[in-house]
Design a binder for these strands. Structure first.
Length: 303
DNA sequence: AATGTTGCCAACCGCCAGTTC
DNA sequence: TGAACTGGCGGTTGGCAACAT
C-alpha cells in the first residue's frame, strides 16, 4: 500500500491549464523562483497540486523550451542516446537543453519507435528468427541519418502548439537571463556536466556492468567516425576525468557482453564538479560531427 | 454531412530516491 | 534508525484534431 496520491484532495483541479493559471504560476515563480512546489498552490491560490504546478513549469512555462520540429540532428541524438541509455528520458533531455523529457518521450513513442519498428520489419521479414535486435537497431540508427531527410519531408512535425504558454515562455527568457537566483536554467556547460554524471550513472545502473557488445561497439564505432572523437590524448588531457576515463575499460570475455568497469559513482560525482566533455558528449554536442556522419551515410551504397 | 478511426500530446498516476525530523 | 514528506522520473491515458470512410 503506497502513499495516497497527492491529487486526491477534494477541490483539486485537473486537466488542461488555462492561460490565467499559467500567468498566476509564472508570476509566482518570477517572484520566488522555481522550487518549494508544495507551497505554490497555497501561496498562489491555484487549485492545482504541487506536482501539477511543477510539471506545468518544467514542461511548458520554463523559458528556453523549443517545441515541435525536431531537427534531424536532434532526432539522431535521441536515437543514439536511447540506444545508449534506454528510456532514461530525463538523461536524454539533458543533452537537448531546449527539449523536455516529456517532449522527447512523446516524440520517441509516436515517431521514432514506429520508424524503428518499420525498419526492423523491412530488414527482417522473418521475425521468428530471434535475430540480434541490437544489430538491426544499430543499422536503423545508421540508416536513420540518411532516411531522416526524406521522412522529414513526408512527415513534418507540425508546430501546431502555439498557445499562450509559448509566449509566456518567450517573455520570461529575458528575466531568466538577468535573474541571478535562478538555478534551474543550466548553461550548456553546466548541462553537459550534469549529463555526464547522468550518463555515467546510467551506464552503471544498467545491470551494474553489462552492456551488449553490439551496442557498445556501435557507440564506439560511431564516435570513431568523428576524427575529433575519442583517443587517449583526449582522455589524458582531462585533469580529473582522466582518471575516470582510464577506469572505464571494455573487455569482451567471449560471452558477447562487454563489461564496463566503472569507478565508484560517488567519486565521479564529487571529484568532477566541472568535468570536461567526454568523448561521447563531444560528439553529441558537435553539430558538424552529425553532419559528417550524414554525409557518410549518403555516400554509403548500403542504403 | 455524419460517423468512425487514428495520431498526437498534455497531463496524470504510481513508484522511487533523497531529505528531514 | 526509520517514518514521513517532497521532488523527480517513466509509463500510461484521455481528449482533441485530422483524416478516412
Amino acid at each position: 500500500m503506497g502513499r495516497p496520491p497527492c491529487c486526491d484532495k477534494v477541490g483539486i483541479k485537473k486537466g488542461p491549464w488555462t492561460p490565467e493559471e499559467d500567468i498566476i504560476l509564472v508570476s509566482y515563480i518570477q517572484e520566488h523562483g522555481p522550487g518549494n512546489w508544495r507551497s505554490v498552490p497555497t501561496n498562489t491560490g491555484l487549485l492545482r497540486c504541487s506536482k501539477s504546478c511543477r510539471l506545468r513549469w518544467t514542461n511548458y512555462l520554463r523559458p528556453g523550451i523549443k517545441r515541435g520540429n525536431f531537427t534531424p540532428h536532434e532526432e539522431g541524438m535521441i536515437i543514439h542516446l536511447q540506444a545508449l541509455l534506454g528510456n532514461k528520458w530525463a538523461a536524454i533531455a539533458s543533452y537537448l537543453p531546449q527539449r523536455t523529457d516529456n517532449d522527447i518521450k512523446n516524440y520517441w513513442n509516436t515517431h521514432l519507435k514506429k520508424k524503428l519498428k518499420k525498419f526492423q520489419s523491412a530488414l527482417d521479414p522473418h521475425p521468428h528468427v530471434a535475430s540480434d535486435s541490437t544489430t538491426t537497431h544499430d543499422q536503423f540508427v545508421s540508416k536513420s541519418f540518411n532516411e531522416r531527410r526524406s521522412l522529414d519531408i513526408i512527415n513534418p512535425s507540425p508546430s501546431t502548439y502555439a498557445s499562450s504558454t509559448e509566449n509566456i515562455s518567450r517573455l520570461l527568457e529575458g528575466w531568466m537571463r538577468s535573474s541571478p537566483k535562478t538555478s534551474n536554467k543550466l548553461t550548456l556547460e553546466e548541462n553537459s556536466c550534469h549529463s555526464a554524471a547522468a550518463m555515467t550513472n546510467n551506464l552503471v545502473d544498467r545491470g551494474g556492468d553489462l552492456v551488449s557488445h553490439e551496442e557498445f561497439e556501435s557507440i564506439l564505432s560511431f564516435e570513431n567516425l568523428n576524427n575529433a572523437a575519442w583517443d587517449k590524448s583526449t582522455c589524458d588531457s582531462m585533469p580529473a576525468a582522466g582518471k575516470g576515463c582510464q577506469s572505464i575499460t571494455a573487455a569482451n570475455d567471449g560471452d558477447d557482453k562487454v563489461h564496463i568497469v566503472m569507478p565508484e559513482k560517488n567519486k565521479l560525482r564529487s571529484e568532477n564538479s566541472t568535468p570536461p566533455l567526454s568523448f561521447l558528449e563531444k560528439w553529441l554536442l558537435d553539430e558538424s560531427a552529425a553532419g559528417q556522419v550524414e554525409e557518410m551515410m549518403e555516400m554509403s551504397p548500403m542504403f
